[in-house]
């Protein structure tokens, strides 16, 4: 089973993932403009894009543990999922700025005054250096520091999940599931690796 999946994964070109992954925001925008997202399309579009970002981030975080604990090797897609996360969250942010809040004076006030927005903005800002260095040149240039820098992903994921928990009213199940999954995926990084046998 794992072997079959690994063989399939090797055959699927990464470019296909970029192309397919680029489509949802356009489809959602089209749906929003034509009534497919219900009677309040701005809120729906904003939430759908935020949710897509969290899902892509969860996939990104799952790739390393899947290889380590299950033997499933999807590592060649990890960069694509990470960049798609950034892309969805940028779209989410643009919808918030230009369709939702609209009023420039209120945007800055919201970022400073409202903790869930402060946290969401912080998570987005932390993603910028990750996106900028998601290329082979940066990996070579930064050397071991690249790995250290990209541990920021864990912080981004936890902040993103907290942002989701905080924006819902009442005690809701869905954001808590996201938070639990993300915390579990981050915690798996702390499972000690077996030391190689001394020869």
């Amino acid at each position: 089973m794992t072997a079959t999946l690994n063989r399939l994964a090797r055959r699927l070109p990464v470019s296909a993932l970029y192309i397919i992954g680029a489509l949802p925001p356009f489809i959602l925008l089209y749906m929003g403009a034509t009534g497919g997202l219900g009677v309040e399309p701005i809120e729906a579009l904003e939430h759908e894009l935020g949710g897509l970002g969290l899902k892509a981030l969860i996939v990104t975080l799952a790739i390393t543990p899947l290889r380590r604990f299950v033997g499933l090797n999807m590592i060649r897609f990890r960069r694509a999922f990470g960049l798609l996360t950034f892309y969805y969250i940028c779209c989410h942010l643009l919808v918030w700025l230009f369709l939702d809040v609209q009023i420039a004076g209120q945007i800055w006030a919201d970022i400073l005054k409202r903790p869930y927005i402060t946290i969401g903005m912080a998570a987005w800002a932390l993603m910028v250096p990750l996106a900028v260095t998601s290329n082979n040149h940066s990996i070579r240039f930064l050397g071991p520091r690249w790995r250290q820098l990209h541990r920021l992903t864990y912080g981004v994921a936890i902040l993103g999940a907290i942002h989701f928990v905080m924006l819902r009213k009442g005690f809701q199940l869905e954001p808590l599931i996201y938070l639990t999954v993300i915390l579990a995926l981050v915690a798996l990084r702390m499972v000690p690796k077996r030391k190689p046998l001394a020869v």
């Binding site: 925008l29 929003g32 403009a33 309040e40 399309p41 369709l99 903790p115």
Partner: peptide, 14 residues
Amino acid sequence: RWSQATERRIGGGL
């Protein structure tokens, strides 16, 4: 968690 100064009327579209 959010401002109450303004509101959006449902039905105005995107």
